[in-house]
Design a protein around this nucleic acid. Sequence first.
DNA 1: AATGAATGAGTCTTCATTCAT
DNA 2: GATGAATGAAGACTCATTCAT
Lengths: 199, 199, 199, 199
Amino acid sequence: MREGLPGRGDSDKRMQLLEAAVDVFALEGFHRAKVEDIAAAAGVGKGTVYHYFSSKQELFQAMLEMSFNKYRSRMRAQLRDPVGLHQRLESMLAAHLEFVWQHRKMAQLLLTDNRPLPEKMYRWMWQQRRRMMVYVIRMLKQGMLTGEIRPVDPRVASLVVLGLFTSLGSQLAFGPEKFNRDKLAADAVQVLMAGLAGK
Amino acid sequence: MREGLPGRGDSDKRMQLLEAAVDVFALEGFHRAKVEDIAAAAGVGKGTVYHYFSSKQELFQAMLEMSFNKYRSRMRAQLRDPVGLHQRLESMLAAHLEFVWQHRKMAQLLLTDNRPLPEKMYRWMWQQRRRMMVYVIRMLKQGMLTGEIRPVDPRVASLVVLGLFTSLGSQLAFGPEKFNRDKLAADAVQVLMAGLAGK
Amino acid sequence: MREGLPGRGDSDKRMQLLEAAVDVFALEGFHRAKVEDIAAAAGVGKGTVYHYFSSKQELFQAMLEMSFNKYRSRMRAQLRDPVGLHQRLESMLAAHLEFVWQHRKMAQLLLTDNRPLPEKMYRWMWQQRRRMMVYVIRMLKQGMLTGEIRPVDPRVASLVVLGLFTSLGSQLAFGPEKFNRDKLAADAVQVLMAGLAGK
Amino acid sequence: MREGLPGRGDSDKRMQLLEAAVDVFALEGFHRAKVEDIAAAAGVGKGTVYHYFSSKQELFQAMLEMSFNKYRSRMRAQLRDPVGLHQRLESMLAAHLEFVWQHRKMAQLLLTDNRPLPEKMYRWMWQQRRRMMVYVIRMLKQGMLTGEIRPVDPRVASLVVLGLFTSLGSQLAFGPEKFNRDKLAADAVQVLMAGLAGK
DNA sequence: AATGAATGAGTCTTCATTCAT
DNA sequence: GATGAATGAAGACTCATTCAT
């Protein structure tokens, strides 16, 4: 049946399913989301899901991975040009907020519902955070070398940075207020760099 | 059987159930937790649950409220004696970490599983965060008046503060590392107050 | 505890329960009626029910019997004075309608819900009908002897009579219309006696 | 597996379920009937029931409607040829008895168990009776015009007629005796038309 | 490859009944 | 006698998964 160009990367239906999965899972959470609804949202039959994914579980994981990958490549794109640490933190945070905003639903899902993932997936998610942390720590260490930041425990500092990202992200995704994302990022990084205490 | 002081305000069984609920929900998440298991963990019959709570849902909510209330009173206790802002943030964070550590399971639950809560509970949880934020903002504003902190957008700053709390909390609850909680709190607040940028 | 005159026929509570049972069973039907509700309606504790009746089942049966007995004695009262058959049928029907009207709820119950009664009760109810039929047949036979009615198969005729009673009863109990019960009885018996066919 | 003519309008399984429902509901009553048993009787899985009916309730209603419809079309078939009123009543009653006999179980159900039907269904059943009554009244009025019956209150008379139908029906369905249905119908209508009173 | 009818394991919830006080 | 907290058997219903077409 498969019409269209042969060798066209990923099967159409698979991608449709993944995208439908983002919507439905985000809206309903893992448990309330029904495979049938995802199939319907993707415009395919229920059985078709099982051609592409061996289980609801697996579909969920694949969907998560796809989303994380999008996130990572978005972040990486931000980091090409070599700028100072302050500037870099600012554009990373802006990119983070931009992504979170655009994938609000997905973000809500990650921050609220899940847990079917028998450990394995959990570990994977934690790993993602870990990876991010490692990257931030490296960045901070380098900043200390260049004198852009003063000597602090990089592990503690990275937690502060990550907390900032997450906190602003949640507020954006859940909060009722509208923010100017770029200004928010700039302000927050400014606070982070200069500290709260008056000079 | 009835041990302990007679006439103890809240029904024994109800409290047993709430405590069993914390354990089981934290371990399994809302959906996988079986009412029967909670009953068993509390050492009562399945039907007894429905004497005290009209549904699994309600039991879950009651359990959350109990935990939040414990958290709030713990926090408030920390805030009796009048100290400077730096000191206050430090002891709040320390208390937060202490609580999170002691209620690790509960924390994991809140941060990972949930979503059955048809809006109502959601709103309630968001409200809790809101309330905390309001409190922090007030604290920061006062700090600006006393000159303890420099003039910054208090909303942005409060997000940084909350992010710090959450971030350290997660790391503590989920991370494999052991931390000296008091030192962690002190260091983090130090970073927060003085900022990353070298003087 | 039992205060009041000793030897006072039937225990107070028992009677209260039976009366509450009529209301609740009639309103809810056997299955939906909850023992607890009946107890509450009688103003006693749930456990008390089981002092007087060994089961919901038995309570139901006792309640039915009480009602039937009331019915029978009401009917019998009607039959003291010796009058002609036409007159007797008329006053029986009027008494029937009167009773049905006053015990509307009970009637609805009998005509709509029931069936928990594992045979035993069923047989009993059928027996009541039977007994009634036997009585009617005897009456009809006598009427033939006295020449008040013409020779017909008494069994068939009794079915017609009983059908009349039931049919008018249902209409009264369920129908939205208000009837003048005595006139209705008179008219119906008139039709029954004289037949539909014009002379 | 699928035997019988292909393309048969109503789904096979649905019909199997309806027929199994008649048997099981009639045997057990609404409440005691287990969905699982109906499924088993229909030779399908438990879940299948919920493909065709959204609830036990709905299955019950659908089953009732099917039966009533059968009854109505049976009755109507009886009424094609134009005959006198006496004759018509007789064949209607005979058809009624025939149907009741063949659907004895169903009849028992209707006359004994039910009441889950939150009003809606009740109204519908009452409506059926109403409709029948209206039809009978029209018939009687016409009979008065043609002089086949004498002038009587048609509403009262219709109650007598319906009572006759119901009464004989019950006797047939529940009673232990065997009847010659046609003779019974003829005799009863004869009584009805000529009345009990001797000429 | 695609489908959706069919399935039944898994759970919440109800409520008659028991029994310690 | 009276009570109501406690119990657990029983049953409706959901939904991931299979499989014949």
